[in-house]
Design a protein around this nucleic acid. Structure first.
Length: 472
RNA sequence: GGCGGCAUAGCCAAGUGGUAAGGCGACGGUCUGCAAAACCGUUAUUCGGCGGUUCAAAUCCGCCUGCCGCCUCCA
């Protein structure tokens, strides 16, 4: 089977046919680095990370670029508020973003260009757009001439005449048309600027992506991604600029849905957001990733502590299965032969991801494997255990989940839940409980178990020994 | 006003023509001193509402209702 992706431009599911066989080129719009990443950014990153992992697993060599907008009104404004150098501020949040994405196990893209590294290229592109008659300069600013570009609106499929132009934003008198947008902005006093044919200034937001994607991936590439809020105007404008330069840009435009909080879009402007760091103070990064992956990337995702707790429970079930299998592992000789056992599961799993990255459906297959694995372990069947264990890990790798040793996952729960008992305290209480049990003092045994449970430690009486773990 | 999305069990969530995946929870069983975990079984005759097409619809068409988003910076 082959990958099918939803293309915003056509509004349809399309078979992924790369420009170059065996290679996939992707560009995703990254953050403007003036603040910490919130859960919405995490969702976009996770969605395209799954795409990259799936392409790689399908045998593609992937060239993935994701930019940082490191000069922009908001960065300048925030730097002023904090009385800080704007470049230092941008660097701080680039570091923060990378840290957060690593926490949710997103692979670092092949290229992470910064807008400020491509200013010269942007100036060249703007000059060419003007030369071709699709932009004009006014008092140090340069605007893209939207009415001149007949295809404008083809991505978001909207007629400009039907839009409420200027409904919420004052129309700039100097623009020929209210829809025209800035390619270059003349610098105001005290603002960072670069010399240009139109005087000192800085690039507009949209031109960055047109310039950087063409330099890193070429005039045409396979997939361009971002959140649905970027469809218009950002991606429409990118497409217009690139089109005016004779560059077709992406064949497939993929957009992820929003994260919602109390039924509203989580966004900086509404102020109703949780940063990734907020979430990481209470939940494991892997738990957040599981939540993001548990629903199809294009639909809305309702964010809540309850949703995170459910994600935690689901992950716990998987890690418990992996942990239970450990005692039976080590029969390498069984591996090759018995992989036939998981063949069908793996095919279904791949089919699910091929179907516009249906991670929710893929997780359904994962839990079928979990059940099979638990059965094999209970039956003491080493060869089956090895096969299902391997299958589970392979699927997890493609989703960027459950790759850690189970002990590490459970230990992390103890830290996150602030369990104030040290391992030796717990062991001591277990010894006391074992003695009580030996004396058939069930009341005392149960009291100890309840006390531990209250503090977040779960006891399990296995044959011959009692084990414990922090509960998720 | 234009464009787009969503509506499936107590909760989360798959499912684009063939008779409702999966997770959480709940209930019953096996195991256990009792539990926990695991396994087995039960938990939507029904998919926002009303019509229509069809042998057959959650899935296609029409109308309606509710919610969300874009048209300004936003993943």
């Amino acid at each position: 089977m082959t990958l099918k992706l939803h293309n915003t431009k056509s509004g349809q599911l399309e078979t992924f046919v790369p420009l170059e066989p065996g290679r996939a080129t992707l560009y995703a719009c990254g953050p403007t680095v003036y603040d910490n990443a919130h859960v919405g950014h995490a969702r976009a990153s996770a969605a395209f990370d799954i795409l990259v992992r799936h392409l790689k697993a399908s045998g593609y060599e992937v060239n993935y670029a994701r930019n940082y907008t490191d000069v922009d009104d908001k960065i300048i404004k925030r730097a002023r508020e904090k009385n800080q150098d704007w470049q230092a501020l941008a660097q701080t949040y680039i570091d923060s973003f990378r840290e957060d994405m690593a926490a949710i196990n997103c692979l670092e893209p092949t290229h992470t260009p910064r807008a400020t590294e491509y200013i010269q290229g942007m100036i060249e592109d703007i000059q060419e757009i003007i030369r071709r008659g699709f932009a004009y300069a006014v008092e140090g600013d340069v605007y893209f001439d939207v009415p001149a570009w007949r295809d404008y609106g083809q991505l978001s499929r909207r007629e400009m005449e039907e839009q409420e132009a200027g409904a919420r934003v004052a129309v700039d008198e100097r623009k020929k048309s209210p829809a025209d947008f800035a390619l270059w902005k003349a610098a105001k006093p005290e603002e960072p600027s670069w010399p240009s044919p139109w005087g000192p200034g800085r690039p507009g937001w949209h031109i960055e992506c047109s310039t950087m994607s063409s330099r890193l991936l070429g005039p045409e590439f396979d997939i361009h991604g971002g959140g649905q809020d970027l469809i218009f105007p950002h991606h429409e404008n990118e497409l217009a600029q690139s089109g005016a330069l004779g560059r077709p840009m992406a064949r497939i435009w993929a957009h992820n849905g929003f994260v919602r909080l109390n039924n509203e879009k989580m966004s900086k402007s509404l102020g109703n957001f949780f940063t990734v760091k907020d979430v990481l103070s209470k939940f494991d990064g892997e738990t957040l990733r599981y939540l993001l992956v548990s629903k199809h990337y294009r639909g809305p995702l309702d964010f809540s502590d309850e949703a995170l707790r459910e994600a935690e429970k689901a992950l716990e079930r998987i890690y418990r299965a992996l942990e239970g299998a450990e005692a039976l592992m080590g029969e390498e000789g069984c591996l090759a032969f018995n992989m036939d056992l998981v063949k069908e599961f793996r095919e279904k799993f791949t089919e699910a991801l091929d179907d516009d990255l249906n991670t929710a459906k893929a997780l359904g297959v994962v839990f079928d494997v979990v059940r099979s694995l638990n059965r094999a372990v209970t039956a003491g069947n080493q060869c089956e255990t090895v096969a299902y264990f391997a299958g589970l890990k392979i699927m997890g790798d493609e989703l960027g989940l459950w790759q850690r040793p189970p002990e590490e996952f459970f230990a992390a729960q103890g830290v996150l839940k602030s369990v104030d008992l040290k391992a030796e305290d717990i062991e001591r209480m277990i010894v006391a409980r074992t003695q009580a049990r030996a004396a058939k003092n069930w009341a005392e045994a149960d009291r100890i178990r309840d006390e531990l449970a209250d503090k977040g430690v779960i006891l399990e009486d296995k044959a011959g020994a009692t084990t414990w773990k922090y509960s998720a």
